[in-house]
Design a protein around this nucleic acid. Sequence first.
DNA 1: TCACTTTTCCAAAACGTTTTGGGAGTAAAT
DNA 2: ATTTACTCCCAAAACGTTTTGGAAAAGTGA
Lengths: 339, 339
Amino acid sequence: MAATLKEIAQRVGKSVTTVSRALAGYSDVSEATRAQVRQVAQELGYEPNITARRLQKRRTETLAIVLPTYSPRFSDPFFSEFLAGVGNAAAAEGYDLLVSTRSPGDEEEKAYRDLIRSRRVDAFIVVRTRLHDARIEILKAANFPFAAFGRIEGDNDFLFVDEDSELGLRLVVEHLVKLGHRRLAFLAAPPDLMFARYRLKGFTETLQARGLPVDPELILTGDLSQRHGHQLAGILLDRPDPPTAIVACNDLMALGAMSAVQNRGLKVGYDVSITGFDDIPPAEHAHPSLTTVHQPVYKIGKMVCQMVIDVINGREIPNPQITLAPSLVIRQSSGPVQI
Amino acid sequence: MAATLKEIAQRVGKSVTTVSRALAGYSDVSEATRAQVRQVAQELGYEPNITARRLQKRRTETLAIVLPTYSPRFSDPFFSEFLAGVGNAAAAEGYDLLVSTRSPGDEEEKAYRDLIRSRRVDAFIVVRTRLHDARIEILKAANFPFAAFGRIEGDNDFLFVDEDSELGLRLVVEHLVKLGHRRLAFLAAPPDLMFARYRLKGFTETLQARGLPVDPELILTGDLSQRHGHQLAGILLDRPDPPTAIVACNDLMALGAMSAVQNRGLKVGYDVSITGFDDIPPAEHAHPSLTTVHQPVYKIGKMVCQMVIDVINGREIPNPQITLAPSLVIRQSSGPVQI
DNA sequence: TCACTTTTCCAAAACGTTTTGGGAGTAAAT
DNA sequence: ATTTACTCCCAAAACGTTTTGGAAAAGTGA
């Protein structure tokens, strides 16, 4: 059986209190005693029972993240990287990460409420914020600590890290305009996703700022998957007046669009330019490689996690609302317009 | 503050014991008392303190899964789905899922040892088994409950679910041979991964069984990524005597191989046939769609999780070692050989 | 009435830790 | 010789639950 403080105390001939305090490094324990306690603890292979510690400290030292899965067969190249960022930051601070997956809606809200009520976790990490985000409303109402990757419509009076998607799209559009493109199409994402809004906004406003028309027929909405990217690009390309550039809301759809272009015997980056957003690993290794906006997902995961840990430990948060400036990664899938 | 049994007991005028037993459904509580306890618990919004319960029950009701991440920017379409399967099964049984990510090696082993020593979790789920799997050795040595997705070299005297990859590859090769292919190449994976072994074995043995030569020059090893698939397929295609079919160890490499073929102006499924393994979502929606072996990752996740929960609860495991028969999904990327 | 069973209840212990609020003993200062 | 200060220690309470081992009260059958 696992050793306890009590056993150490018996062996050392001191009280449990003293043993506890010796190991915790309090100064009201003599060095001799401390050394002896350490020695015996070592011998017995003592490990504190963290459940007992958690009970006494009234903390679970656990963070929750509920991944929104839009389809049963979900497979988002994005989440695994984010998870790694969050998980490593959590581990570094001695926190556990409790992960579950729910599809948005009732099930998801129930998961949040249950986790809050059962006090299983100390805080939440919310990912991929939505326009009216029930998760954030629940957390705010319960006054439960959390940090988000992304912002919401309305009061962003909570901890978040976000990339400035609007600016990201401005960089993309300006890059394409500079290459001579005038007819740009946009593969949008469901408008309840905040990042989709920002990206659409960045797209249209930059066009307008450049004095270019915003043709609603060239703005199609997909579900972020490669398949939808393929389908929607097909629709655009089969028009009598196809766009010369397709700006996708994310890399997956851009990759799908690329294959649609190639299927029609056209050359990506020459006949049609294509851009993405996220800079997932396949973007770099696609053929041609994909021009996209880099999003440091791992780093954002770390930041969000660190923030929320800081806040539950009452530490000062120097910068509770962080918006990162994106950078454009120009690769082969975007090139000068052909005339 | 959150209500406790003590408060309910005071309100009801009964002991804490009785309240606890009333809520737990013991029969030595009168129906009248039970109703009253329930009523008051409801009014106070009572939720049991899960940490206290865990301390008393000497269980953490938590499962650990450490995802092996081979690169910092890892993004495996596979894990998210597996995670969903495991997570949902765990949630259904009231278990929490503790997730972390480590790259294989010392860090990973340390994570296992730490989790075991600190008794943070009741059991482990091991994923993507390896030839000499240090994780499994550690768990066995510690006599710690676990279940694996995959087998190991040597004694498989532990809980596992695996798909019969060897059979999967037999199906693939026989399909291609039936289509007239004689020169088959294989994109293998690092041989310390068990599934890579099985797949390679299935490939070579089926060729031999069919009386076809196994040309070592046509067997190249990659890291499972799309990029490596692309590179290695390039090497094969640029040979003076290129293969007519490329059998990839997984879908990601197959997808990479497809783009290499297309880059050379060849038609996948016509000039060169390509097959994968896993049946990840992009496989279906690739162009052409990818012939592959279906792997029910979500379901396997559920099964593995259920198994390990059963075992820590002392329940009978009807089938502690499960090998699933795979099914071949024939799509457009494989076609008759051209002569 | 007695013996026996059934119903209903509960005090106390246990899980293993940390914190609180001292107290004893010794050394230094007055 | 007394006060003050410091060092080292610890009993007890607390965190909130479940389990153990009865015991009192009520009912039953003779």
